[in-house]
């Protein structure tokens, strides 16, 4: 396991705390881990590369 230290905007932290206080997550760490996992699922390098390639195709050879 790695330990990361990060500064969060107050509003974001408040939203995390609401989830924890309401019992949806064990602690703040669990919220951050789940949020990061979900973010990484949709931000895979190969996926972002695919989108750029679609941009190139449309940009240079698109019809509209």
């Amino acid at each position: 396991m790695k330990t990361l230290q990060a500064e969060l905007p107050d509003k974001l932290y408040e939203q995390i705390k609401i989830l924890v206080d309401a019992g949806w997550f064990l602690d703040e760490k669990s919220v951050l881990t789940e949020a990061l996992r979900r973010f990484l699922e949709t931000h895979k390098p190969e996926l972002m590369e695919k989108f750029i390639k679609e941009d190139i195709e449309w940009g240079l050879r698109g019809k509209d």
Binding site: I52, E54, D55, I56, W58, G59, L60, G62
Partner: peptide, 13 residues
């Protein structure tokens, strides 16, 4: 869906 890169390249076409 496309992004900023697409708009820049489209400017050539």
């Amino acid at each position: 869906a496309y992004g900023t890169i697409g708009v820049l390249l489209r400017a050539i076409r």
